[in-house]
Amino acid sequence: MNSYSRCSVEDTFANGDEKIICDAILLMTFNDPDWKWVQNKLLDFLSSPSESIRGVSATCLGHLARIHGVLEKGKVIKKLSALRADKDISGQVESAMEDIEMFL
């Protein structure tokens, strides 16, 4: 995936390949101007059975806060807080929460 289009990332998300989905999540986070759409996609991905997808989604919520300076903070913190006990991604969750506090 060389250039960004929302249609291409949506197609990638439907693909099911974990590595490619993670790459598309990063691409979306850094390139889509609609922070709210990206935020909601990331929140959805936090429920993925894939540790990698959950982890990169948590990390990208921190990136989104840094890039745009805005999120639906209460909604995002609530979802991230619920994942603090997820030992597979707890470090990424904590980092994202720190980034959100720093940039919002």
Rank of each mutant, 00 (worst) to 15 (best):
M1D: 08
N2E: 15
N2G: 09
S3Y: 12
S5F: 04
R6E: 09
C7K: 15
S8C: 05
V9T: 14
E10L: 15
F13D: 08
F13T: 08
A14V: 10
A14Y: 03
G16A: 13
G16N: 01
D17R: 08
E18Y: 03
I20R: 09
C22M: 08
D23Y: 00
D23L: 06
I25R: 02
I25P: 01
I25C: 04
T29R: 05
F30H: 11
N31V: 04
N31E: 10
P33V: 12
P33H: 05
D34M: 02
D34R: 15
Q39S: 06
N40A: 04
K41Q: 15
F45V: 03
F45R: 07
L46H: 00
L46T: 13
S47F: 06
S47K: 06
S47P: 00
P49R: 08
E51C: 05
S52K: 11
I53P: 06
R54K: 14
G55W: 01
S57E: 03
T59W: 07
C60Q: 09
C60W: 00
L61G: 04
L64C: 11
R66I: 11
H68A: 05
H68Q: 04
G69N: 06
G69I: 04
L71P: 01
E72V: 00
K73E: 14
K73T: 15
I77P: 00
K78D: 10
A82G: 14
R84H: 07
A85G: 13
A85K: 14
D86E: 10
K87A: 06
D88K: 13
I89Y: 01
I89C: 05
Q92A: 13
Q92M: 13
S95N: 13
A96Q: 02
A96N: 07
A96C: 08
A96E: 01
M97E: 12
E101S: 12
M102C: 06
L104V: 08
L104D: 00
